[in-house]
Structure formats: structure tokens, C-alpha cells
Write a protein that binds this DNA or RNA. Sequence first.
DNA 1: CGGTATCCTCTCGGATACTG
DNA 2: CAGTATCCGAGAGGATACCG
Lengths: 111, 111
Amino acid sequence: MAVNGDKGDYICSVEAAVNEIGGKWKSLVLCSLKDGKLRFGEINNKLPEISQRMLTKTLRELEKDRIINRKVYPEVPPRVEYSLTAKGESVLPILDSLCDWGKKYCEYNEN
Amino acid sequence: MAVNGDKGDYICSVEAAVNEIGGKWKSLVLCSLKDGKLRFGEINNKLPEISQRMLTKTLRELEKDRIINRKVYPEVPPRVEYSLTAKGESVLPILDSLCDWGKKYCEYNEN
DNA sequence: CGGTATCCTCTCGGATACTG
DNA sequence: CAGTATCCGAGAGGATACCG
């Protein structure tokens, strides 16, 4: 989509990956699910800065791309659990690399 | 910044990394520089879809975070060369992983 | 509890024109 | 050549209220 020619495939694949797991919240939501399934509210607790609206939207997009599973339990009050699919598990090494890189090269302490 | 407690460092580091190399264009610009220094126009040729405005902005941000170097030659017409710093080189393995992941899991061919 | 719906603001990002 | 400047629309994303 972005470019043709010799190095095009490389760039296109990176672009495709960024489309699916890039953006402000997707990687963080995936991080929060790395240790197992979580309920909507539990994800929100791990990511207090995300709004309900954006969390819903992010989860829907990840679900659409089959990176996470959404399981609804027909109970009252309702219970919904999110978990990584195999595809989702496969991004964890990339998130680990990002974490290591961030720790080593970024200053993100209070300014 | 995002969260406190046990897993907070992990998420914060990922967040910091995404802030520096995330977004629509940064990873693609870094990809284009992976084989060595390029001029402004050469990067634009490799990424025909990026506008001059966004390329300039992206390059400035990467420069600010010391991920790329900007070298200006005092010539007419002007010549400016961009290259990866050591920090920038250190993200290439992550981009490789992203590329592999995208190739394996994403469909980005013409829909 | 796990969402929608609505409103609002702000940034992203494209298009175009201009410049040293 | 390598940008700036300006304008504009679309979407990101927050705040709040409401719902089954």
C-alpha cells in the first residue's frame, strides 16, 4: 500500500503491523492482558488513564483483528472477560522488546 | 505516569517507547533509514504517501529524541542528510520483529 | 458491571502555495 | 532541495450522562 519495489515489502509489513497494534492504547491493553484474562473493569484498573469510551473502542478493534477474545457470561450483573488469542500472544515478545528499549533509552520519570 | 504498582514499570516503559517511535509515520521513516543515511527527498521517495509537512514534523521529533541525526551541508541547493543514531539503530531489531509479525499475521494486500 | 450516547476539544494529517 | 506557512476536514480522545 505504501510503496512499491525492492524494500517495499518490509515497509508494508511494518505498516500493517502498526495499523493493528499501534496507536496510543492498543499496546498497553495487550500488556495488561499478558498474564491472563481480565474483566473490563480490571483492565481499566491497570490503565487508569484510559477512558471507558476509548477502552471499549480499543477492545473492539483488537477483537476485530482477532488479537483478543471477548467472552460474555450471561449473568447479572454482567461479566465479560478478555484474553489474548494465539495471534495476540505472538505480539508479547515485541512488547517485551519495546519495554526493554523504553527502559534503556527513554526518560519517562516525572519531569 | 500511567499506572502504579507491581506491573506498572512494564507498562510505563512500553508507553514511553510508543511515545518515541509510535504513530503513523515514525516507524516507517526509521525503516527507510535502516540501510544508511538518506536525504529528505530520498526518504520521501521511499514513502510516497507521506506529505512534506508530516515528513518534516516526524523527522524533527525523531531528531529531538535523538533517534536520528540531521546533517546540513552548507551548499546551494541545500543538502540535508538524515541517519540513525546508536539509539536509532537499536530499534531496528524491533522493526524487524514487527515486519515478521505483520507478514505472518496481517493481511494488507489490496482489499 | 460493562458498556452507549452525546458533546466537545484538540491534534493529526492532507493540500496547496510560497521561500532561501 | 528542503523546507515553512496557511487552511481545512476527519478522527482521536476526554467528560459526562444514561442504560440493561
